[in-house]
Amino acid sequence: MTIAENQPAAGAPLIELTGLNVVLPTGERSEVEAVKSVDLVVHDGERVGLVGESGSGKSVTGRSIAGLLPTSPRVRVSGSIRIRGQEMVGAPARTWDDVRRKTVGMIFQDPLTFLNPTMRVGRQVAESIPDRRPVRSGAGGDRTARDRAVFRFLRQAGLPDAEQVAASFPHELSGGMRQRVLIAIAIAKEPSLVLADEPTTALDATVQQHVLRTLDETVTELGTSLMLISHDLAVVAGMTDRVYVMYAGRIVEEGPTARVLAEPRHEYTQALLRSVRSLTDRDTDLYSIPLALRQRFAEEPTHVA
């Protein structure tokens, strides 16, 4: 590969996965093809959903985009991950650090594993603000500018009492507040893409609604692209314009979110929607995707665009 080929290219999509395969070890001698020939594109300013059941490979796909797959030598990645045209498969750790610092901001399901329990929230937000100049304690100028930025990001992430939150430790905050802190940390980098993996799954419905609204408003305000990974079709429905449906490591269907939900074309998407609707529609019987159908879906790779 020439150097020119590996440089960020103007006009290239923000994220472009081509024929991505990821193999993960599951035991001493066993492994699983978690992601199988996945093609996926996210353009600037786009809001893309990635839905699937547990074990579908959606989170592994998300982690590949952020360069956060396990570091074991038994993890095998093939195919292509291009971020602004730059090939990232096989890229050194430093290049990935750069991507995570500047291009991709992440929000995960469980904020406590992501937040440092011994550090006040304000400092954790400050650390992700780019172009950091050395901050001397008590040296005035820079420090207050940084503080102001921290408060601004916290407010933007739906935490009006920014000063108080900044001075708190993670355990002093509620689950919904912690998730908003993660949003603040993600947007403080001014990333091109916010990658949110089940950002509200652990939250109560009323809190989930507020956090999703905050995420929606923040992404709109900053013009950032959003990739929302979720098992919950209702969450993806309200937040994205385009959606990919994953099953057994493959993308089975892709299209405008409204179309996919109203007129799903792949049999799996149809079955999935039928089961989701059977939980809420009063007049339909509870529907669970039959095992025989699942086996067929897993064996026959078909893609509907």
Partner: peptide, 14 residues
């Protein structure tokens, strides 16, 4: 549980 699995378990309970 995922929606489909949830529907299955609820059907068993009913």
């Amino acid at each position: 549980l995922d929606a489909s699995v949830k529907a299955g378990v609820l059907a068993v309970m009913a």
